[in-house]
Simulated assay, not measured.
Amino acid sequence: MLNTPIKPMLLQPATIIPTTDNYIHQIKFDGIRTILHYDRGSIKIYTRHKNVITLQFPEMKNLRLPVQNCILDGELICFDTSDGTPKPSFDDIMIRFQATNQIKIEELVKQIPAHFAAFDVLYLNGSVEVSKPLGERLSLLEEIVTNNEYISICQSYSDGNVLFDKIVDLGLEGIVSKHKDKRYHLDSRPIDVFYKIKNYQYDIVAISAIRKQKFGWVMSKDNRYMGMLEFVSPVEREAFYKIYKQLIIKEDKEYIHLDPVIKCKVKYQCLSKKGYMRSASLEKFII
Rank of each mutant, 00 (worst) to 15 (best):
P8F: 00
D21P: 05
D21F: 13
Q26C: 11
D30E: 05
I32F: 00
T34G: 12
K44F: 02
K50S: 12
Q56C: 05
F57Y: 14
R64M: 13
L65G: 05
D73N: 08
L76K: 01
I77L: 01
I77C: 08
C78R: 09
G84M: 06
G84W: 03
P88W: 10
T100L: 11
E106V: 13
L108C: 14
A114M: 09
H115F: 10
V121M: 03
V121P: 02
N125A: 01
K132N: 11
G135M: 10
G135S: 06
G135D: 05
E136P: 03
L138Q: 13
L140Q: 06
I151G: 06
S158T: 14
D159G: 06
G160S: 02
N161E: 09
L163D: 12
F164S: 07
I167C: 08
L170H: 12
I175K: 08
H179W: 03
R189P: 00
K196L: 01
I204P: 03
G216I: 02
M219K: 11
D222R: 15
D222E: 13
Y225K: 04
M226P: 00
L229K: 06
I249E: 08
I249T: 15
I249L: 15
D252R: 00
I262Y: 06
G275N: 08
M277T: 11
R278N: 07
